[in-house]
Amino acid sequence: MDDKVSIGMDSRRITTTQRETTRPFSLKRQPRLGESIIQGFLLFCGVLSMFTTIGIVVVLGSESIAFFRQVSIVEFVTNTVWSPQIDEFGILPLLLSTLLTSTIAMFIALPTGLAAAIYLSEYASSRARSILKPILEVLAGVPTVVYGYFALKFMTPVLKAVFGEANVNIYNMASAGLVMGIMIIPMVSSMSEDALSAVPRALREGAYGLGATRLETAIKVVLPAGISGIIAAFVVAISRAVGETMIVAVAAGAKPTFTFNPFEAAETMTGHIARISGGDLSYASIDYNSIFAIGLTLFLMTLGLNMVSRRLVRRFREVYE
């Protein structure tokens, strides 16, 4: 015991004597080459996503500029004919069918998704949740090309049976839109459910204490409290519908048509990009440039929607302690 202490004392004495001769042990941060290299690599990984965005903007922008040298922007946004063979480049028919299919999809997805979210968050027992949630997750994980198959081989025949064989085209926007709505339900319900579950329990208990029924609590207390998240879910859902490609490529038709009739075939923006780039495409043609102009329009639309969604969340968020 004594030995150990003396050794300890000894070594301490040595260090104190050394302090005068050598540099003192510094507690300051020391440069470590290995750590800096690793940190540099990690920073690169983080910054790579910036390059992706810059890449998207530059690629879409530069090819679109090449397109707009040949076609005026005014023609692009006002012409109702898209027919590259006869030099007609009006985005309106493509835009209209995108909006039509998305609107149909939203009529299905938003109410159903919200109602499902309310059920899951306010009504369902934990047992029911454990069955229903995985089903919705599976539905969300089904690849979109499979939904395309479903639209063409199931929804279209059903629509034909209901509205008459002659009234419904084999390729039509309604069937694509309806199936797209089904595809988006899980997304709306899961995002909205998150928003509803985040509402503090005390609010619900307060409502029950005042004699409100479960429905009144859900609709008049919980729903308004979670509205920011729900609106965000809705906006993201719209952006998802606008950008959806495979369902419309399979089921909505392969010819740009300016029509308001959902039972007609009409190609959407995404469908057109997929069809044109799927064929043998010459890189020097105006067809090639034109899909980038459509892509830019699509990108700006979805980016705008996503930004609106984020702004809405910040604006209407209720902060609870």
Binding site: S49, M50, I56, V59, S239, T270, L305, N306
Partner: peptide, 29 residues
């Protein structure tokens, strides 16, 4: 760093076909 984070969140919402066009120009060509 806030810009990086926002950017990643935005990228998650970009339609997949846009990535295809990016890949066509950058990787394929």
């Amino acid at each position: 760093n806030r810009i990086i984070q926002t950017n990643i969140n935005n990228l998650a919402g970009v339609p997949s076909i846009i990535y295809g066009m990016l890949g066509l120009v950058i990787f394929v060509r």
